[in-house]
Design a binder for these strands. Structure first.
Lengths: 119, 119
DNA sequence: CTGAATCCTTGATGATACTG
DNA sequence: CAGTATCATCAAGGATTCAG
């Protein structure tokens, strides 16, 4: 798809590929403090389907953001957590989610209205 | 779809709705320093179709992130720029895009390999 | 418990032509 | 110049079922 795309869009594509998934921010949010097992994540995010959970975890793993550790074979226990590289995202994750919270409040207050306060 | 979703996923949904579009980060990136006209944006992002450009601009406008100012009627001149509220995003935008740049470098170096350096 | 495989629906995206 | 409108596409997401 993106071959030698070193233009101005490349880094945006890259960022979006890592964080753009519908559930990735949420997954990372849950993992940012403590590593968690598959079942825990599933319980923490009830709305997500198993397929999507696995899929997004895999992608995050492929991107080097999180690791996957098999704790024992029988019964299966798998733990997911941030890699060192993934942790470089946390300083970004925090303000991003904070902003989301504030934005949510604002939407609730204004309803669908937007006070177009220009510069 | 999301009715009274005040659970933990709400703020993620909100964030993704604002920034999740394929081109929004890029558009905001171009607008973050100086307001720009429609044609300038189109020229700066040649890959985007007119429909998507308008659409994403409209959504950002609806979300109160950017404003739209009609400068004259004939010939049409329309300028887009950050609102005061939108500017609250800039401190987030910067590190996010910086991270994207770094991530891009990393991908180029490692190819498709990921050095799974765990905690 | 953790995960793989399949099928299906939908929203997001794109290409193109047209308009004030 | 700055859009609109329409049609086509396509990948993401979701439901379900099966497996180690």
């Amino acid at each position: 798809m993106q071959l030698e795309q070193t233009d101005s869009t490349a880094f945006v594509q890259a960022t979006l590929k890592v964080l753009g998934g519908k559930w990735k921010l949420l997954i990372l949010w849950h993992l940012k403090d403590t590593a968690k097992r598959y079942g825990e994540l599933k319980r923490l995010i009830p709305e997500i389907s198993e397929k999507m959970l696995i899929q997004q975890l895999r992608e995050l793993e492929t991107d080097g953001i999180i690791y996957r550790e098999t704790l024992s074979e029988m019964p299966p226990k798998v733990q997911y957590g941030f890699t060192d590289y993934g942790r470089t995202l946390i300083p970004i994750l925090k303000p991003l989610c904070d902003w989301g919270q504030e934005h949510l409040k604002r939407m609730k207050v204004n309803g669908q209205n937007n006070t177009n306060s220009k510069s």
